[in-house]
Design a protein around this nucleic acid. Structure first.
Lengths: 187, 187
DNA sequence: GCTCGATGTGTACGCTTGTTCTCATGAGCG
DNA sequence: CGCTCATGAGAACAAGCGTACACATCGAGC
């Protein structure tokens, strides 16, 4: 046998789009095991690429994490803004927000975890704080399509708290409770 | 000279209360440099004790961090509950809450940072999640002295979100805004 | 078809980490 | 006093980390 039937690694020389794939894989690792476990080696293993490949494509681990979070924020913020833009009026906007919270966010543990992990990472890493602030400002701007700036800020804070509670508490609030609270605060 | 004039370390053999001091020092390190920087060595250096002393007094680093956060939660929760207990009625309770948020929490970066660091640590460490849940439930119970359970929960979520925003955002809300939002939600 | 620069690979280095281990010490008790 | 054992001290270890680097490989332009 000059060539093994099933090589352990497919010898992926010339792998265009690897950079992109690394960003996605990094996000997966963060979601599954947390930002502190998102090491070069863990991401390399998950993406099935050699260790050196990471430092070739990204100057540092922080760069890679920033790229990953940045992509995630882009995705979520764009989706949210699209929905808010489609709302005909304030009442509809609030209902969409409830749907967004209870359906998407609380429904998919992944996004919830990623949100908290971003807070975590940003709390100590200045390079990632820019991503968090981008997220906060885009979220607020979306809300401002139907709420005045001050109110948008209040609602945003409540949403952030609900997310945190849902992630860390044992018994999260249900859709009806969230709707009721949002209506009162946005009243 | 058989004995140096100023020994680098006072040879603190028999140091009763060292365990307590280690817990406090751990909290200081967490507040100043974050929970990820709170290593055995960092805490030992800050407390001016040898490295081995930490694993002697605490089975593991997690144990030490849990003890530290637990003590902090005790302090803050007790202080908060005392104030809420002293409130004659609902309106006064809300005002005290505003004071608590704007004065104590947002006034002292230390408590704010510790709150976020606890979220961070609990997000990944199951042993610390118990401390977070203890904090959340005590905070809610204090609020329930003047608010019904459902409302207490809503207010608690808003407070959590406000804390997070204050810690990570560039322009925190002022006391008047916070008061207004709390009044509306607790209405 | 050859060269050259971009990309991929694998190893190594220096460092920090949590934890363990052995030995020294001295306070409390008979 | 003398014993004993909880406590203190400091060195050591294995593991994991980010990063750097030397070498292989291949696509594209001449």
């Amino acid at each position: 046998m000059s060539a093994p039937a099933t090589p352990a690694r497919p010898a992926r020389r010339h792998d265009p789009g690897r950079r992109d794939r690394l960003v996605d894989t990094a996000l997966d690792v963060i979601a599954e095991r947390g930002v502190t476990a998102a090491t070069h080696r863990a991401i390399a293993r998950a993406a099935d690429v050699p260790l050196g490949s990471l430092t070739y494509h990204f100057d540092s681990l922080t760069d890679l994490l920033a790229a990953a979070f940045s992509r995630h924020v882009d995705t979520v913020a764009a989706r949210f803004d699209e929905r808010m833009r489609a709302a005909p009026d304030r009442a509809a906007a609030l209902e969409i927000l409830v749907e967004h919270l209870t359906g998407d966010l609380l429904g998919s543990p992944r996004d919830l975890v990623l949100a908290v992990e971003l807070y975590v990472a940003a709390a100590r890493n200045p390079a990632l704080r820019a991503v968090t602030q981008d997220w906060m400002s885009r979220s607020r701007r979306s809300l401002e399509r139907h709420l005045d700036p001050v109110n948008a800020r209040e609602v945003d804070a409540l949403v952030e708290g609900l997310v945190l509670h849902s992630a860390l508490s044992t018994d999260p609030m249900d859709a009806a409770q969230i709707r009721s609270a949002l209506r009162r605060l946005a009243g």
